[in-house]
Design a protein around this nucleic acid. Sequence first.
DNA 1: CCTCACGTTGACGTCAAGGGCAAGTTCTGC
DNA 2: GCAGAACTTGCCCTTGACGTCAACGTGAGG
Lengths: 141, 141
Amino acid sequence: MDEMRIGDLASRAQVSTRALRYYEEQGILHSERTPSGQRVYSESAVDRVRLIQHLFSAGLASRTIALILPCVDTGHASPEMLVSLHTERDRITTVIADLQEAQRRLDQVIELTEHSTPEQCARVRDAAGRTSALAGAGAPA
Amino acid sequence: MDEMRIGDLASRAQVSTRALRYYEEQGILHSERTPSGQRVYSESAVDRVRLIQHLFSAGLASRTIALILPCVDTGHASPEMLVSLHTERDRITTVIADLQEAQRRLDQVIELTEHSTPEQCARVRDAAGRTSALAGAGAPA
DNA sequence: CCTCACGTTGACGTCAAGGGCAAGTTCTGC
DNA sequence: GCAGAACTTGCCCTTGACGTCAACGTGAGG
């Protein structure tokens, strides 16, 4: 089962066939073709697509991915590419920082609300002496 | 100078007026109006906009921001909102993980290439004994 | 041979976060 | 009181990563 077609790859890598064709269009995924023109992928394409997905979900643009994938493969890059790589690395660093900042804020809100919703405040007040004031915080609606 | 108009806010918060109107349209930034209809903001709007920018650059969508801003303000949220907050928190966590993964890959490539481009390998080989093998690695083409 | 799922390319739709323009109003300075 | 800057709404344009539909080719089974 080393030779698969686009549908197989799509289901194995959990992406749409449209996405796979798009990746090829963007030059970040290559395929062999049968004489009739149908795409044929090898087993390794699955990992490839997963990697691409990771990079996408990390916020890299397809052009950036196109840029770095050959480097990942060959293990070396031209000096200009190195600059891009560093640039991208820095960008990611700041995005991570922003994300962590946002998460801190979310955590603050969660912290605050999770222990002080009006309901729970009331419950704490009303039942200040029963078993556990937070016991009834189960699934609502 | 507690009362400012959109242009002032824009320049103070480093965003376009278009963006500010967009934020208002999305319900994440509110304004008073003069009788003639011009937007008036208070000093606190600057921080507000900066916060919004942070959340945006952390990858939150405007609807999500619209969702959490009231919580940030009031310090409490409805149970359903709490669910959303947790969901968002989890999403951010995985995005951060993806980013770090991507960064690790970038670092690998950078590491590899920065110390083993063909040019530098050759140079190291050819000039193994001169001043500094990395001296001439300036801008190419 | 027919069917029917699967494949192909091409072209258009979508969604988000604004950019940019147009046409009209309002504020500010001289 | 008038020029010109700043404001208003409304509308279409852009970019990226696909979704979706159309119209057609292909290949394995009955």
